[in-house]
C-alpha cells in the first residue's frame, strides 16, 4: 500500500514542474534549476528542493576544475570553469561510496541519493547545501 506521505515529494515535483521521473525510477533534476534557487546562508530552501531530500535523482553536470585526484568527493557544477564567485547553490557535493576521483572535463550524468540543507565544517562554514551520494564513478 502506498502512503500519501511517500507520494508527497513526487506530487510536489510534478506540481512545480522542476523535475521529471527518468526511465530508471530516478527523478531527473536539472542543474540549472538548482543553480537558480534564490538562497543566502540561513534561508529556507524551496519546497521542491526539500521534497528531493532523500530521493533518488539523476543529474548532469561537470566536475569543477581543481577536483583533487584520489578523493572520495568532488563538486558537480554547470560548467567546469572555476571562475568567479562561487555560490552554494552553484554546485552539488558528490560523495562516492566506493572508488576515488579522477578528473574528467566531460559532462557526467550521475544517479544517486540527494540530500538538501546546510552542512557545515568544523569552523561553521557552510560547505554545501546540495549533496549527492553515488555508488561510484
Amino acid at each position: 500500500m502506498i502512503s500519501l506521505r511517500s507520494l508527497l515529494p513526487a506530487l510536489l515535483l510534478v506540481g512545480l514542474g522542476a523535475a521529471a521521473p527518468s526511465a530508471e525510477d530516478a527523478t531527473v533534476v536539472q542543474m540549472v534549476e538548482l543553480n537558480n534557487v534564490e538562497y543566502q546562508i540561513g534561508d529556507d530552501l524551496p519546497d521542491w528542493v526539500i521534497a528531493l531530500d532523500g530521493q533518488r535523482i539523476e543529474i548532469a553536470g561537470f566536475m569543477r576544475t581543481g577536483t583533487l585526484e584520489g578523493e572520495t568527493w568532488f563538486d558537480l557544477t554547470n560548467d567546469s570553469c572555476g571562475c568567479g564567485t562561487s555560490k552554494l547553490q552553484h554546485f552539488v557535493r558528490v560523495t562516492l561510496e566506493s572508488g576515488t576521483t579522477s578528473f574528467t572535463p566531460d559532462e557526467l550524468t550521475l544517479t544517486g541519493t540527494f540530500a538538501a540543507g546546510e552542512q557545515e565544517d568544523e569552523d561553521g562554514f557552510v560547505e554545501s547545501i546540495y549533496r549527492l551520494t553515488i555508488t561510484s564513478l
Binding site: R64, T65, G66, S80, C81, G82, C83, F103, T104, P105, D106, E107
Partner: peptide, 29 residues
C-alpha cells in the same frame, strides 16, 4: 590525458564530436 594545468581563472577548452557521435573535451586551466 584530458586535462593540463591547475584550477584557475583562465582556461581553454577543446570539444570534438567524434565519428562515433560522442562528445569529448580537452581542458587546459
Amino acid at each position: 590525458t584530458r586535462f593540463w594545468g591547475e584550477a584557475g581563472c583562465d582556461l581553454e577548452q577543446y570539444r570534438c564530436v567524434g565519428a562515433d557521435g560522442e562528445l569529448r573535451t580537452w581542458l587546459l586551466s
